[in-house]
């Protein structure tokens, strides 16, 4: 399985891959277009009559204690969750790939120093580090949240890429490219990075699920996405005091988290099998 298109095709041909990709595509579409058809997620309909209202035709997922439509908040939350996950994972994959390429290609002292730093960083529990940093300021802007999640998530990726580069460096086609006068930049980006893209893509896909969970957890603790911006974790936090009276306030965002993470893991899993040379 060598090319990206073939790998994606192979994922689509597995039931779990198709289910995962299908759900994610549906969710992305919903996140993009849903808000056009749904009520404004901040709109408070009627604090007296419509607080914690059960699901109905007007409000299929019910309303929360501020009489806001839960469905439109879940859909807006999908925007936030997916955007945070995509940007944070994009950042950590870029950082991880860059460090891995540098360490693997140049080797020697540089490699040793970088990898010992990564070892050290991996010894720090990510969640505690984030909790510590996020609890200091009063309000954390969304961009800062993405930056923090992104910059603390690349350590394992850099190891993965480094290992791939070390393997690929010994391949004849890399030596052949050097022998035929390919520049260093071409060797690094075209021959090493592109061939390491498979495992990198698998790691990124699985990373998306991790980041969605992490962001939901942080938001649930009140340290992630700040209200009134809707986020799935924050909505569960909002629904906690009324869990018995109005379970729909937290159940629907909770289900969204579970399904989304499940879908990304299914796709990641199927991708890994597609790239596995032993063929699963």
């Amino acid at each position: 399985m060598s090319t990206l298109r073939e790998a994606l095709g192979a994922v689509w041909r597995t039931p779990r891959g198709r289910a995962g990709m299908g759900f994610l595509a549906f969710l992305a579409l919903l996140a993009l277009l849903g808000p056009l058809a749904l009520p404004e997620p901040f709109r408070q309909f009627d604090l007296e009559e419509l607080a914690n209202a059960a699901p109905s035709v007007d409000h299929p997922f019910g309303t929360d204690q501020l009489s806001r439509d839960v469905l439109s908040r879940v859909v807006s939350g999908a925007r936030i969750s997916l955007a945070v996950a995509a940007l944070a994972v994009g950042l950590s994959v870029t950082l991880g790939a860059a460090v891995g390429l540098v360490a693997g290609y140049w080797g020697g002292v540089l490699d040793a120093v970088l990898m010992r730093l990564v070892d050290g960083a991996l010894a720090v529990p990510r969640l505690f580090l984030l909790l510590l940093v996020l609890s200091v300021p009063d309000r954390v802007p969304l961009a800062a949240l993405i930056l923090l999640i992104g910059t603390t998530g690349w350590f394992a990726t850099s190891r993965l890429v480094r290992a791939e580069v070390l393997r690929l460096r010994e391949e004849t086609f890399v030596r052949a490219a050097e022998a035929l006068g390919a520049s260093r930049r071409r060797v690094i980006f075209r021959h090493l990075l592109v061939n390491a893209a498979g495992p990198l893509l698998v790691a990124a896909t699985l990373g998306v699920g991790d980041v969605i969970l992490l962001e939901a957890g942080l938001s649930f603790l009140g340290l992630g996405v700040q209200p009134p911006t809707p986020s799935w974790g924050g909505m569960i936090l909002d629904g906690r005091p009324v869990l018995e009276a109005a379970p729909w306030v937290s159940v629907f965002p909770g289900a969204a988290i579970i399904l989304t993470v499940l879908a990304t893991n299914l796709v990641g899993d199927a991708l890994r099998d597609a790239f596995d040379p032993r063929g699963a």
């Binding site: 391949e171 004849t172 086609f173 035929l180 592109v194």
Partner: peptide
């Protein structure tokens, strides 16, 4: 110019 022993591995598989 140079060519190598194993044509299976001397071409980049993704291009």
């Amino acid at each position: 110019g140079m060519i190598f022993q194993d044509p299976m591995t001397s071409l980049n598989p993704v291009f």
